[in-house]
């Protein structure tokens, strides 16, 4: 039987340090702690980043544990559970905004719709629960990708599909937008999937602050936008509701 594989041992040591008290460490700090050359540590970090086990903070350049690792260490949130816990909040968002509401979770590189509330105008609408939407062309998807960068990195290996002239197909532009979304806490898609349709979404976190889903509204651009940007009060409703659901998930399960 072969002996232990050195690079895996070193990767494990890095992860252990990142799970410690300081949580965010730079290459220099890690190499100092481990007594390894910076180049070696950097190489291991790059691989860990690619598989989603660590993430690099855009501003400071420091590393922290990635969402993929957090997901593995805990049971993921059941989509049916998410719908049940969010039900009243989603109804209230639809009533307040006058638009249809959807809740989605990441399903590989797509968004799985786990809940859908009709636009409250009694027009003919069909339930979309169970359908898959492209992550890079939807507000729900981008809100999720902003917190699951390893999936965005994965997606960049293939061409990003074009749906309208506004669809983001450039990987660097997508990355910049995901940075902005992380910063401001909400995402939008302005006619990036369908002509004439705008969506606004915000992430839902569980009690470990892991993003487990996103919720948002969609509707005709003329209702959702002022001067070609999403209306601030609608953004406010979406963010408040997503925060309320996050609080709900932080409570003891019933």
């Amino acid at each position: 039987m072969p002996g232990p594989i050195q690079s895996i041992e070193r990767a494990a040591a890095i992860l252990r340090l990142l799970s410690g008290r300081s949580r965010r460490l730079g290459v220099a700090e890690l190499s100092g702690e481990l007594g390894l050359p910076k180049g070696t540590v950097h190489g291991i970090l790059r691989t860990l980043q690619q598989v989603g086990f660590v993430e690099q903070d855009a501003e400071t350049g420091k590393y922290q544990l990635g969402a993929a690792l957090l997901h593995m260490g805990s049971s993921y949130l059941d989509g049916n559970e998410l719908r049940t816990r969010a039900l009243n909040w989603a109804d209230a968002l639809a009533a307040r905004s006058g638009e249809s509401v959807r809740i989605g979770t990441l399903h590989e590189s797509q968004v799985l719709i786990v809940h859908h509330v009709f636009r409250p105008d009694d027009s003919r609408q069909a339930l979309e629960v169970g359908t898959l939407l492209p992550a890079h062309a939807t507000a729900l998807g981008k809100a999720l990708l902003a917190h699951h960068r390893y999936i965005a990195t994965d997606m960049a290996r293939n061409d990003l599909q074009t749906f309208t002239s506004s669809t983001i197909t450039d990987v660097y532009r997508l990355r910049r937008e995901l940075d902005e979304i992380t910063e401001r806490g909400w995402a939008s898609d302005q006619e990036e999937l369908y002509h004439g349709v705008t969506s606004i979404a915000a992430p839902i976190e569980d009690r470990r602050r892991v993003v487990v889903g996103a919720m948002g509204i969609s509707g005709a651009s003329e209702r959702l936008c002022d001067d070609a940007s999403p209306r601030p009060e609608l953004i406010g409703y979406v963010m408040e509701t997503a925060r309320a659901v996050s609080r709900e998930l932080g409570a003891i399960p019933w």
Partner: peptide, 13 residues
């Protein structure tokens, strides 16, 4: 009738 106007479908199967 004014109350009926408040009733909106959130979902239909």
């Amino acid at each position: 009738d004014s109350l009926r106007e408040h009733w909106h479908k959130a979902a239909e199967w």
